[in-house]
């Protein structure tokens, strides 16, 4: 009765939504894998990246750069700025929310990163407008493009929609997600630094003894996490087109849920978890009458079921705690 095209539409939406969840979830599993802590502000870091890209774009636009320079160069430049911001933010997260709690209960960094996430979110909401407008005035003078309010929704530049086509944009989003996953996989499994990071996640003391520079690896983890989250922010922004300062909390919760469902330590688990969550949400919305109201409730129910009955996730080894 329901046409095939409809199902395909839904699958397409679910894959795209799954990509956005996955990108944030990778951040969670990367940090958890190495540090054994949940860095809850991943979603906010990603959205901060998106907003810094948006701010830079606004300023570049005022300078008249965006029209004259080749599009690819502009995108790369913007990404570079976003990556810079997110990497710095990642380091700050480590300094203020992870490092002070190395010796205390594991819940301290969780609480601290939740609070830090709120700080990031509120700083975007409160500071975005003054900062962008101030800098834009300084750099672009009369041509400055002004942003209304930091808390109001902002429109993200549609750089990926080549010729206004969303199909191209969607393909790019999926492709970039896959490429990032592959690169991350290769990095973690084929490079010395990556292997060192995995070793730390297995056993910190032993890694120290075998001569791995643990603190350097941790810093690298946060920088890489920042890079991944900046790119996620860019893709999420391009996908949504309209961004709000508090989108980070929703992506954070969904990303964390995806990472848990997939298995917190595993990068591929993040993909599976993200896709599962997105499929549950989209299919419930699509096939149940008035299902949107219950879609995210059901997604959380799935998460709870996983935590209670299969806490190690879809991919993940069961561990038994020993004295």
């Amino acid at each position: 009765m329901v046409p095939m095209g409809y199902l395909l539409d839904l699958i397409g939406s679910a894959v795209l939504l799954g990509c956005t969840y996955t990108l944030v979830a990778i951040g969670f599993s990367l940090f958890f894998g190495v540090m054994d802590v949940v860095v809850f502000c991943c979603g906010d870091i990603a959205i901060f990246g998106a907003f810094s890209i948006l701010a830079s774009y606004t300023i570049l636009n005022g300078l008249g750069v965006t029209g004259t320079w080749p599009l690819l160069l502009v995108i790369l430049l913007l990404l570079l700025i976003g990556i810079l911001f997110c990497a710095v933010l990642g380091l700050l997260t480590h300094r203020f929310s992870i490092k002070p709690f190395e010796k205390s209960s594991a819940l301290m960094p969780l609480l601290s990163t939740i609070a830090l996430g709120t700080v990031i979110r509120e700083v975007i909401g409160l500071m975005f407008m003054p900062v962008t407008n101030g800098v834009a005035d300084m750099v672009a003078g009369e041509n400055a493009v002004h942003v209304v309010s930091g808390r109001n929704p902002q429109s993200f530049p549609s750089l990926l929609s080549l010729g206004g086509s969303t199909a191209a944009r969607n393909i790019i989003i999926v492709l970039v997600t896959v490429v990032i996953l592959l690169l991350l996989f290769l990095f973690l499994n084929k490079t010395k630094t990556g292997l060192a990071m995995q070793a730390i996640s297995q056993n910190k003391e032993l890694s120290l003894m075998t001569g791995i520079n643990v603190s350097r690896s941790i810093v690298i983890t946060f920088v890489i996490g920042g890079v991944v989250l900046a790119i996620s922010g860019f893709l999420v922004g391009s996908y949504q087109t309209i961004m709000s300062f508090d989108n980070g909390s929703m992506f954070g919760i969904k990303g964390f849920s995806a990472a848990v469902v997939g298995g917190l330590r595993n990068t591929w688990g993040a993909v599976l978890g993200g896709m599962l969550l997105a499929f549950v949400e989209v299919m419930v919305s699509g096939y149940v009458p008035n299902g949107s109201a219950y879609a995210s409730i059901l997604a959380f129910v799935v998460v709870v079921i996983f935590i209670v009955f299969k806490p190690e996730g879809i991919i993940g080894e069961k561990t038994v705690e020993k004295v």
């Binding site: 949400e281 299919m283 919305s285 699509g286 008035n290 995210s296």
Partner: peptide, 22 residues
């Protein structure tokens, strides 16, 4: 023909759009 209630913090309405289209 149909009605859909979405969450206030939702940002992705692709399923709703597909439903409207259908």
């Amino acid at each position: 023909l149909g009605s859909e209630v979405v969450q206030e913090d939702a940002t992705d309405f692709s399923a709703v759009v597909a439903k409207i289209k259908n």
